[in-house]
Amino acid sequence: MAIRRLDVTDKAKELIKDLVEKHGELMFYQAGGCCEGTQPQCFEKGGYYPRMNDALIGYAEGFPFWVDRDLFEYWKHAHFTLDVLDGFGPGGFSLETPLGKTFKVHYRLFSEDELADLEPVQRNE
């Protein structure tokens, strides 16, 4: 079985469930830009359009988690764990912001064995 690139904490799963009840289907996008930094953003499905060659690294509770193509090149050797914190992050466009929450990603480098058996990445065409 291939090694996942993305996991989700229980606390983030709870928040995703609440957001789905309020907004319906979701999507996640993690940019490498200036305004939101590298904070993952949560949108209603179709509320953001990934760019050419952005990377779909996995699914957070069944919803796609896209990473900016340039940021992915930097972090392609790392596992992402989606978490949530109380408070406001640097971005204000994400659906959890009005709830006083912010999604956050914890990173760890894959081991050599894990790198040899990673799930494939889907690129936006």
Rank of each mutant, 00 (worst) to 15 (best):
Y107Q: 06
R4F: 04
G92W: 08
D117R: 13
W75M: 15
K11G: 07
D113Y: 07
L115S: 03
H106L: 15
E73W: 04
E125P: 14
R51Y: 12
N124L: 09
L99E: 06
P64D: 02
F65W: 03
V8P: 00
E21V: 04
L99D: 09
G24L: 10
F80Y: 15
P64W: 04
Y59Q: 03
P50G: 07
E119M: 13
T9P: 03
P40E: 08
E25C: 09
G91L: 05
D117C: 08
G24C: 07
D10Q: 14
P90Q: 13
D68I: 06
F43D: 00
F28W: 03
R5G: 05
C34P: 00
F110R: 00
P120Q: 10
K22G: 01
Q39D: 06
R108F: 11
T38C: 14
C42Q: 00
L82M: 08
V84A: 01
S111A: 07
L56M: 07
F88N: 04
N53E: 14
P120V: 10
H106C: 10
V20P: 01
M27L: 15
G37P: 04
G92Y: 08
L82E: 02
E125I: 07
G24D: 02
E96A: 09
Y29D: 01
R5K: 11
W66R: 00
P120G: 09
N53W: 03
A12D: 02
K11M: 06
L71H: 03
T97C: 11
E25H: 12
V20R: 00
Q41M: 15
L118S: 09
G47L: 10
D68G: 12
D83Q: 04
V8I: 13
F63M: 01
F80K: 00
M27S: 09
G91F: 02
K22T: 12
Q122D: 06
K101E: 03
A116L: 15
P40G: 12
E96Y: 02
F28L: 12
D83G: 05
G24K: 02
C35H: 12
D117Y: 02
A2Q: 05
A60L: 05
G92K: 09
P120L: 11
L19W: 04
M27R: 01
Y48W: 10
F80H: 13
A78P: 00
E112Y: 07
P90Y: 05
P98K: 07
E21M: 13
I3F: 01
T81A: 12
Y74W: 08
N53H: 12
L85H: 05
C34H: 11
R123F: 15
P120D: 14
F110S: 00
K17Y: 09
K13A: 11
T38A: 12
L109Y: 14
